[in-house]
Amino acid sequence: MLLDIKELNVGYGDIQVLWDINLQVKEGQVVALVGANGAGKSTLLKTISGLLKPYNGSIIFQGEDITSMPSKEIVAKGIIQVPEGRRLFPGMTVEENLMMGAFRRKESKNIKPELAKVYKIFPRLKERRQQKTGSLSGGEQQMCAFARGLMGNPKLIIIDEMSLGLAPLIVDDLIDNVKEINRQGTSVLLVEQDVQLALDNSHYGYVLSTGKVQMQGNSLELLRNQEIKEIYLGL
């Protein structure tokens, strides 16, 4: 088991947002975490990355308890988040953003080969490497955020709302990139409001609703589930 979340309760002050969350990501899997706006997805991600401390429960990564670790150590362990809304550093060039992605790596003195690898996946970024990220299109910004995540050499990459605000063709390209990264051995937690997209492209899925895991199962089975069809897919 790569990531094992057990009985996690999280909130802001007195207001509890997540209730008894259990979630697992196996090595080599793409796992989808879906749910409507306000279901608690972002809160869960913040907790995994160490930006928020849970009330109780535990987060185990590769057999090690990382529940109360500071985010810099969690990043160094190989859990990298591609945050919702891209959150690029707007005053920096594409390449500087990518270098920031490798910030925590011990071998960060020599990141040239990593840069070359990432540019091979995203040739567009290479063309624009000296541009400030504010001048990129939405799709390019998402690529840059994705590439910045890869620069950290993740074992588990968490991609939050990748498809938000992007044209379907661009989303298709990005999904191909996700699958390619997964084929090369990186596990993926795909967090999406677009339920169809996420379940179509994952092995296993969790449905989060009002702070609880309402359903889970193989993605294909979830897609066929009558309740999901009615509530999330409008079929």
Partner: peptide
């Protein structure tokens, strides 16, 4: 320098800086 980039990153987007592992 790496130090300078981490300072600028922190000023430009605090949470994003923490998510790439800046102390």
């Amino acid at each position: 320098t790496n130090l300078g980039r981490s300072i600028r990153a922190t000023s430009q987007d605090l949470d994003a800086a923490r998510l790439v592992g800046v102390d």
